[in-house]
Design a protein around this nucleic acid. Sequence first.
DNA 1: CGATTGCAGATTGTCTACAATCTGCAATCG
DNA 2: CGATTGCAGATTGTAGACAATCTGCAATCG
Lengths: 229, 229
Amino acid sequence: MATAAVPTVLQLLQSNSLPGLVQVEIEQLILRGELASGQHVNESELASRFGTSRGPIREALRALEESRLVRSEKNRGVFVREISVAEADEIYDIREALDQLIGQRVAECATTEQLRGLKAVVAEMDDAVRVQDVKGYHALNLKFHDMLVDFAGNSRLTESYRLLTKGLLLFRLRGLQDGGGFAVSNTEHKAVIAAVAARDSSRAGRLLRQHAVESRARMHRAAAAAVAE
Amino acid sequence: MATAAVPTVLQLLQSNSLPGLVQVEIEQLILRGELASGQHVNESELASRFGTSRGPIREALRALEESRLVRSEKNRGVFVREISVAEADEIYDIREALDQLIGQRVAECATTEQLRGLKAVVAEMDDAVRVQDVKGYHALNLKFHDMLVDFAGNSRLTESYRLLTKGLLLFRLRGLQDGGGFAVSNTEHKAVIAAVAARDSSRAGRLLRQHAVESRARMHRAAAAAVAE
DNA sequence: CGATTGCAGATTGTCTACAATCTGCAATCG
DNA sequence: CGATTGCAGATTGTAGACAATCTGCAATCG
C-alpha cells in the first residue's frame, strides 16, 4: 500500500490555502453559534486567535460575505448575518424546488449501498426520537439531507443546496430549534426512503418537496412560539 | 428636488468598498471574455490596472472564487474557471427547477407594469431576430431572464439564479453562442408571457421550465457542432 | 439641562516589503 | 542525445506598518 486512502497531512497543508482553512474555521464559529447572529467580527482578534496576520482573515471574510454568512459595512467591519423569517421563507421557496429535484435524482441514481446508509441514519434518528435527544436528532437530520443531496450526483446542486442550508442554520441558531414533532419529520424521511427504494423518482421528488414544506411550517410554528414566549 | 433618484457618486464611493468595486470589474472582464476561460489571472497586473495594491485584488478574487467564476491553486494563483459540458448540464438541472419556480411566482406577483416591460423586451428580441442580430438577441435574452427572476419577488432566488447564469455565461464564452433557432427561443418567451398575462402560474412555471430544457438542448447542439467543426 | 464639539482609543482599509514557491531555460551529466 | 540539476526572474503568500474612519465619553456652550 503505497498511498493512503485519506490524504496526507502534508497534502492537506499544501493544497489548502491558509485563507481557505481560516474560512471554514470562521464558518464553524458562526454555525456553532460562537459568533452570534448580528455580532461584530473583529479582524485582529481572529488574526491573533489563528496566529496569522489580518490579510488571510480578510480574504476569508470576503468569501464568507459572498456566501451570505456575513455582511460588511464600509469602515465598520463585518457582522454575522441575521436572517429574518421573511428571508428564511425565501430560502424555503428555493429549497422546496431543489428538494423535489433531489428526491427525483436520488431515486434514479442512488446505489443500494447508499440507500442502506440512508436507512441507517433514519434508524439512528428513530433512536434519537425515542430518547428525546433533540440535539442529536438535529445533527442526524443535517447529515441525512447532506447525504441525500450528495447521492443526487450533481456536485453543483450539492453546492447550491448547502449554501441555502447554511443560511437556514443561521436562522435556527436564533434559539428556535424546532416547531415540535420531529417524530413526524422522521416519518416523512421514511416515506421518502421508501419511494427511493421503489425507484419511484416522481414520488420521491414529491415527498421530499412536501417534507421541505412541512419543515417550513415547523419553522413558522417555532418562530411564532418564540415571539409569544 | 433635494435628493437625486440615482445615488450620488459620493454615496457610491462611501458605501461600496474598493474590493467590491474591483470584484465587479474583474467579473466583467471575465464575462466579457477579456480574461479567457482557463487563463491565469495575474494579481500585480490587475493591481496596477486598477491603481490599487494587491490586497483588495486578492479579496475580490476570493469572492469570485466563492462564486465559482475562478478557481485557485496554492502558490500558482487563480485561473478563470472552465466549464465543461457536464458541469453546464448540472447547472441546467438546477436551472430547470428554478425556472419553473420563477414562472409560477412571476405569474402570481408581477405587476401589469412589469408585464408590459417584459413584452417590450420580447418585441425587441423579435426585431433582433428579424435583422439576425445574434449578439443583440443574446444581450436581450439575458435581460429578459434577469427581469423575470427579479419580478418573481424573491431576492434570494435572484441571487441564486444569477450565480448559476454566470456559470453558464462562462461556458458560452468558449465560442459556441447558440445552437440555432433563436427565433424558436423567442416563441417560447411569448408563450411564457401569455401564461403570465393569464395569471396561470402552473402553466407559466411549466413553460419556463420547458424553455430551460430547450435551451439546454440548444446548448448541446452548439457544443456538438463546435466539436464537429 | 440638552445638544454640540472635540478628543483618545480602537478598528478598518490599504500599502509596501519580504519570504516562499513556482516556471522556464540553460548547463551539466550519464 | 535525453534526462537531470541548478539557477534567475517572476509570482504568490503573508506579515507588519501607517493612514483613514469610527465610537464612546467627557468637556463645553447655548
